[in-house]
């Protein structure tokens, strides 16, 4: 029984980090109505940025946030501005431009293989970092400390993003654009700038997720692919465009993955996650926690 409890808690911890990796995806979808296939690659870029920030400056792994988040924000901002915007302009009246999905797939392939070219295929881990393998003993259970901090960062990030969208002027402009881009434009909101900002925020969140992963996870060029498909599943489970749903969806997947192996071969849990995903798609495509109209 204690094992199940321990696995559940560990599942919640790692699941909230999955949720954090998917949070940027849901933010971008909520505004641009585009599933960003390159999101895993953005996470990969975030992880490499965090890794090099720590290795080159020798700061504490979590302090790398100060460097990674702004760098990733501008990376996303200009990626959207240079590559994705032209297609939006070409397909003005399509609500869910499928061409954009295709272009983000192209971005995925380019980023993953560029990093393979530049950094090589080897797995990198942070050497002598203060968090590696540290465990916290709590009521007879062993919990990983970097995963615990990841959980805290995920919750704080989600709350901050929620607050930003609800309370700030820019957040309200973004929400207006996501509801109806024509009306928003008529109110004097520059929709393409909003798209840039939203993409930048989504990318910055991917960077934050990268920072939380680096202390206990390997960095390698195709690491994003692992989180890519998982991210799609999580955001659809939670409801595309819903911030809380992304974290909760992540926790669901995390718990299934960590409790499941108590009862079956570990590889089967993956099939269960896909099955759950398809069921949600058929029964309630808006997701478990999503509203019918995005936001």
């Amino acid at each position: 029984m204690l094992y199940v409890l321990e696995d559940t808690i560990n599942g919640i911890l790692i699941g909230s980090i999955y949720g954090l990796t998917a949070l940027g995806l849901t933010v971008i979808f909520g505004v641009l109505k585009v599933i960003n296939f390159a999101h895993g690659s953005l996470l990969m870029v975030g992880m490499y940025t965090a890794y090099w920030a720590v290795v080159l400056t020798g700061i504490h792994p979590y302090l790398a946030l100060i460097i990674v988040a702004p760098v990733m924000y501008f990376f996303g901002y200009y990626l959207q501005n240079i590559i994705i915007k032209p297609i939006f302009k070409a397909e003005k009246d399509v609500r869910e431009p499928i061409t954009v999905i295709i272009v983000t797939t192209g971005v995925w392939y380019v980023l993953d293989n560029l990093s393979l070219l530049i950094f090589g295929p080897q797995y990198r881990t942070l050497q002598d970092n203060p968090l590696r393998g540290k465990m916290l003993e709590f009521a007879g259970m062993m919990l990983s400390i970097p995963k615990f901090w990841g959980f805290v960062i995920a919750i704080v990030t989600a709350a901050a993003v929620y607050w930003f969208f609800q309370k700030t002027r820019m957040g309200r402009a973004i929400r207006a654009t996501s509801l109806d881009r024509e009306s928003a434009s008529l109110m004097g909101i520059n929709q393409y700038r909003i798209y840039n900002v939203a993409f930048g925020i989504g990318t910055a969140i991917a960077g934050i997720a990268g920072v939380t992963l680096v202390p206990f996870y390997n960095v390698f060029p195709s690491v994003g692919v692992l989180f890519d498909i998982k991210g799609f599943i999580i955001v659809v489970l939670g409801g595309l465009g819903s911030i809380g749903g992304a974290i909760l969806g992540g926790i669901i997947v995390g718990v299934i993955e960590s409790v499941g192996p108590q009862f079956m071969a570990a590889t089967w849990t993956e099939a269960i996650v896909y099955g759950l995903f398809l069921m949600v798609l058929f029964v309630k495509p808006s997701g478990l926690f999503g509203v019918k109209y995005d936001w």
Partner: peptide, 14 residues
């Protein structure tokens, strides 16, 4: 240059 062809694919696609 591993992965060169996939970079070409991606750029071509975009």
């Amino acid at each position: 240059l591993p992965g060169l062809h996939l970079i070409i694919f991606g750029v071509l696609l975009i």
